[in-house]
C-alpha cells in the first residue's frame, strides 16, 4: 500500500544516538564531514570507519540497513574509482595493455576518493536513520536562526517542511484513491514503455495537483483563523534542552575531527 511508505528512512529506537539533541547531531555531522575532507591518508579513514561502526553499534541500527543506504551511490563510487584508475597518471606503471594503462598514483587516488564518498554517505545516513523528520526540521530551524538577521526566513522554512511532512500521508492516500478511480474508468498505469507510462500518469497527477492546491487554500484559511502570522515571533511547545550527553558527544566529535585531520 502506498500509505505504508515511511517518510524518510528513520528507524525508531531509544538508543543513546537517537536521544541526542537533533541540533547537536546536525552540527556533529557537519564537523565530521568537513574533517573527512581534510584526511590525507588511509589511516585517517580507518579511524573514521572505526568510529562509524561504534556509532552504528551504539545506535542499535541493523548494519544491513546502513549498507542498503549505500546502494544508490554505488554507481558513483565505481565510476570515480574506474576514472581515477585509468586516467590519473603518476608513479610506477602497474599494468599495460594496448592503450589501457594503470599507474600506482591512479590506483591510490581512486580507492582514496571512493572510500571518502562511501564514508561520507555512511555517516550522513546515520543522521537520517536516527533522527525523525520532525526533529530534523526543529534542529534545522534552530541552526538557521542566526541567519535570520541576513534575511533567511528560518521559521517559515521549518513551517513549510512541517506541513509538507504532515501532508505526505494525506496526499499518498489521495493518490491511491484517484488511481483506483481512474483504473475503474479504464486507465492503465502498468503497461507500456517508460514514456507511455509517464504519459499515463497525467490522469493521476492533474486531479492530485488540483486537490493539493484546494487543500493549501483551505489550510491557509484555517491557519490564519488560528492566528498564524508568518514570521512573527512564535513560542514552542517543546523546548530543546542540551543535556550533558550532548556536550560530551560534541566534544568527542571535535576531538576526533582534529585527530583524523592530522593524518
Amino acid at each position: 500500500m502506498l500509505s505504508d511508505i515511511t517518510i524518510g528512512q528513520y528507524v525508531h529506537s531509544n538508543s543513546i544516538v537517537h536521544i541526542l539533541d537533533p541540533r547537536i547531531k546536525i552540527i556533529i555531522t557537519i564537523i565530521l564531514i568537513t574533517s573527512l575532507f581534510l584526511i590525507g591518508n588511509f589511516w585517517g579513514f580507518a579511524i573514521f570507519l572505526g568510529f562509524n561502526l561504534i556509532v552504528i553499534k551504539l545506535s542499535q541500527l541493523p548494519i544491513k540497513k546502513v549498507l542498503r543506504g549505500l546502494k544508490p551511490i554505488l554507481f558513483l563510487v565505481l565510476l570515480t574509482l574506474i576514472l581515477h584508475i585509468f586516467m590519473t597518471r603518476g608513479g610506477e606503471v602497474l599494468f599495460q595493455w594496448k592503450f589501457l594503462r594503470i599507474e600506482s598514483e591512479g590506483l591510490f587516488t581512486g580507492t582514496f576518493m571512493a572510500s571518502r564518498i562511501l564514508l561520507l554517505i555512511m555517516f550522513t545516513s546515520i543522521l537520517t536513520l536516527t533522527t525523525s523528520p520532525l526533529q530534523l526540521t526543529d534542529g534545522i530551524e534552530y541552526i538557521l536562526k542566526p541567519f535570520k538577521k541576513i534575511g533567511v526566513p528560518a521559521s517559515e522554512i521549518s513551517m513549510m517542511m512541517t506541513i509538507a511532512l504532515r501532508f505526505i500521508p494525506t496526499l499518498m492516500e489521495e493518490a491511491e484513491k484517484i488511481m483506483k478511480a481512474q483504473k475503474a474508468r479504464g486507465a492503465d498505469f502498468e503497461s507500456g514503455n517508460i514514456i507511455q507510462r509517464a504519459k499515463n500518469l497525467i490522469p493521476l497527477l492533474v486531479p492530485l495537483f488540483i486537490s493539493a492546491f484546494r487543500r493549501a487554500d483551505e489550510l491557509a484559511l484555517a491557519m490564519e483563523s488560528r492566528c498564524y502570522q508568518g514570521g512573527k515571533q512564535r513560542t514552542r511547545l517543546h523546548i530543546m534542552k542540551l543535556a550533558t550527553r550532548d556536550i560530551i558527544a560534541l566534544l568527542l566529535s571535535i576531538g576526533l575531527a582534529v585527530l583524523v585531520s592530522f593524518f
Binding site: 512541517t162 504532515r166 491557519m223 512564535r234 511547545l237
Partner: peptide, 15 residues
C-alpha cells in the same frame, strides 16, 4: 497543521 496530535493543539498557542 502538525504531524503529532499534541503539536497540532499547540499550534494556535505557539502563534
Amino acid at each position: 497543521v502538525a504531524t503529532m496530535v499534541e503539536d497540532d493543539v499547540a499550534f494556535g498557542l505557539e502563534n
